[in-house]
């Protein structure tokens, strides 16, 4: 597959992931948000991480797309701007910084994904708390939101890792 086609697939897949996040959250609301646990889907983040680490040419302008998709996320889902709009490019920036030092395989990418999930969720929590959008304490957040969120998203990661790697291998 030519690289030019990947440049088309990447943004389309990014927005499909964005809307799937919301759509699947509604369909599986009974399972994802069963008290006291609530797990948040992060397909957008997963798609971005795969693009940063699996693409060897680093020519996809992932950072800019992350900014844009973060803006749409805030715009469409929450109406509170400046949260995902900042946290997603931040994560992409951090990933770009640590990529040269990593020996890339399934396990290291899994670890990186856990750290990134934690960064995004913690960022959201801190920002919403500062903006008085929510009032929740840190312990509840860690146990009832962060834990289940990581568990669910890791499962999705495991399922999607090999297909995604094959997609990027076929390009490079």
């Amino acid at each position: 597959m030519p690289y030019a086609r990947l440049k088309l697939i990447f943004p389309i897949g990014l927005f499909v992931a964005l809307f799937l996040d919301g759509s699947l959250s509604n369909v599986f609301a009974g399972n994802l948000f069963s008290y006291p646990y609530s797990s948040v889907l992060h397909l957008v983040l997963l798609w971005l991480i795969f693009a940063v680490f699996l693409d060897d040419r680093d020519d996809l302008s992932v950072g800019l797309w992350a900014l844009f998709v973060g803006l749409v996320y805030d715009w469409y889902y929450t109406g509170v701007f400046g949260v995902f709009m900042i946290s997603l490019p931040l994560v992409v920036y951090i990933c770009r910084q640590i990529k040269p030092w990593l020996d890339l395989n399934f396990l290291t990418l899994l670890m990186v994904y856990i750290i990134n999930l934690t960064i995004v969720e913690a960022f959201t929590f801190i920002w919403y708390t500062m903006g008085h959008v929510i009032n929740d304490n840190l312990a509840d957040f860690a146990v009832y939101t962060l834990g289940p969120t990581i568990a669910v998203n890791l499962a999705i990661f495991v399922i999607l890792y090999y297909p995604m790697r094959r997609l990027y291998l076929s390009v490079n």
Partner: peptide, 15 residues
């Protein structure tokens, strides 16, 4: 029709 639900643990919102 319900289009989506906000994927967030704090905002119980539907579109």
């Amino acid at each position: 029709n319900v289009l989506t639900r906000t994927p967030s643990s704090w905002m119980n919102q539907l579109v």
